[in-house]
Design a protein around this nucleic acid. Structure first.
Lengths: 340, 340
DNA sequence: GCGGTAAATGGTACCGTTATCATGGTAACG
DNA sequence: CGTTACCATGATAACGGTACCATTTACCGC
């Protein structure tokens, strides 16, 4: 492997001068610079980023730890973090936790080993203990999508309570009173928020919260079949279902179809998070959409600011973004009117 | 920062012994091992992966260079590559080229600097020159989705010619004779293959290939509006459109709607690549689906085998996977029957 | 002509691991 | 009891950059 020393020898200079040329550092005579550049090209020298990082203790890498790149919500965030980071010459390591705290802890350990300059993370629990090693090693950290107790960091998230309230109120306005909810995993703040928003909306309209209509899901598509079966056997049967994320919404839709029920005629459906590509093909699901792209960009900017400026200990900020209620077809019209 | 030396001092051993413990290497007395482990825990020692890589010249990292993680086709590949790599304790750096050869070249340079152990890449051109540095630095490389001339490597791809032929034949069987095509960028083998398959199908049924019905797209959603407008002004107007990837399919659908045309009543539409989430919500687009998950897994396995075994110079393999024709609603029924 | 300053260049050591080889100790063996 | 063999452990020197400081040269103003 070609090293600075080889280049230096060919160009007749000291290794450090080659280093200066490679990094466009000042203090090199233009003639020397071209001579070195020529040697670099001739030998096809490629600097070793590891050696550089080792010496300078900077990796120019940030990590993005999220649930699952397969979900368009996270994909959009990933893309926007990458674009923002790339502009400042930072690279991104992507990690999928699948909502599994063990995987999360494992990744955090790996990222510490890699000495990433910072981390953007959607934690799998609201308990900061998994994140403590980051504090200990003084790694700048931005938490996205969720809140964590007992862990100080910048937070970028959407206002899930408001979003859930609006979604529920939309159903109420259409005449629904028996609204079922598939909530998210316990100990994840977005799940709690959305549940709170749902309950608030019901209470605001003097509708009692019926626990038999609330099922705890896991933000994945899988478990929906069981839930839907259970919900359909409750009497009186719910007339609407609120799925607290997009994947569970899809699962519910599938399960309902399999049960021979039509949406919205037999059952209204809303969910949190949009699926943009799906909506482009057929605008069907009524959803509360988050601005994933903005979440990613803002988070990356915050993180890079902490990394590149001395202001590491500046006060932490919590940025809460608005959501958008997108009304499409999955709730149909007012309940009375569409009764078959 | 805590180093092996600090741990060694505390445990009363030499640094190398700590290294042995950390790496679970043999030849350490169990008692010593626990003593060192205790010291590691006490000091919260985290080994420095860069120093390790520098010394051992292995990074345990592979790169995945693809078009755009926002597209479910690539997302699925990304996920499956990551899962496969993680099983063997390898990590993945993700790079989006946006079909831009400059970005691609830039990423390749960066990846060389990072000394990744191998690369899985979907090249932006069929010209291997951008990839030559990989050869020069002897980086194992697996090409996915596409073929490249003048660059020897393992290749994992789908049979696009067959897929395009079947898609086109499906349209022909429904009675379509004027079938327009939005093809992919020049110099990308998938684009050429799909075009070839399309032409073959037409020729097999004695339908002349009409160049005014073939537009060259870029695999992105954007340009479709212009194309659709152009196609609608051709006489006789085409009765079906074949979009050679999913995003362009969505674009065409949008453009047709905006032009006030219904699919499939006024225009049939097929495209290459599925959008699984969209189809789960509303099974609409008739597509030729690739097994993205398998492409990723096979590519990762091939690459890791080359990296971890001595067989670096074994003969290169080209693995061609079958595609699946999924008939949904975007072509309607036989042409005669659905004429308005 | 001299001190002062800035630009260009280089020497040396070190970042944190581990490859390589060496060493001491102990058990096994004939 | 000497020899072999193996186990546990360590000393040393790299891996490929660059931080830090020193040196040389040229030029400036007085």
């Amino acid at each position: 492997m070609v090293t600075v020393r080889d280049v230096a020898k060919l160009a007749g200079v000291a290794p450090i001068t080659v280093s200066r040329v490679v990094n466009n550092a000042p203090g090199v005579n233009p003639l020397t610079r071209t001579r070195v550049s020529k040697a670099i090209a001739e030998l096809h020298y490629v600097p070793n980023a590891m050696a550089k990082s080792l010496r300078s203790s900077k990796t120019h890498t940030i990590a993005l730890v999220l649930t699952d790149v397969t979900n368009p919500f996270w994909t959009t965030i990933a893309r926007s973090v990458e674009d923002t980071a790339a502009q400042k010459d930072y690279h991104v390591i992507l990690c999928n936790t699948d909502e599994n705290p063990e995987k999360e802890a494992n990744y955090i350990n790996i990222l510490l080993q890699r000495r990433v300059d910072g981390i953007i993370i959607a934690p799998t629990t609201d308990n900061g203990s998994v994140l403590l090693p980051l504090k200990r090693h003084n790694i700048p950290c931005v938490v996205i999508d969720r809140e964590v107790h007992g862990f100080k960091a910048d937070v970028v998230r959407s206002d899930g309570e408001q979003g859930a309230r609006r979604l529920t109120e939309h159903l109420i306005q259409l005449g629904h009173r028996r609204i079922a909810m598939i909530s998210g995993p316990a100990h994840i703040s977005t799940a709690e928020e959305r549940l709170t928003g749902y309950c608030q909306a019901l209470q605001n309209h003097d509708i009692p919260v019926d626990k038999s209509l609330i099922k705890q899901g896991n933000y994945k598509e899988g478990s929906s079949f069981q839930f839907v079966r259970e919900l359909l056997s409750v009497t009186p049967r719910p007339t609407a279902i609120f799925a607290t994320n997009n994947f569970m919404g899809v699962g519910v839709l599938r399960a309902l179809r399999e049960a021979g029920l039509r949406v919205p005629e037999d059952m209204a459906l809303v969910c949190f998070d949009d699926i943009p590509q799906a909506s482009a093909i057929y605008p069907f699901l009524t959803v509360c959409a988050q601005d994933a792209s903005k979440i990613g960009a803002v988070a990356a900017e915050l993180l890079l600011k902490r990394i590149t400026t001395q202001a590491r200990r500046r006060k932490f900020r919590e940025i809460v973004l608005d959501t958008e209620l997108i009304i499409r077809k999955s709730c149909g019209q007012e309940l009375g009117k569409c009764a078959a």
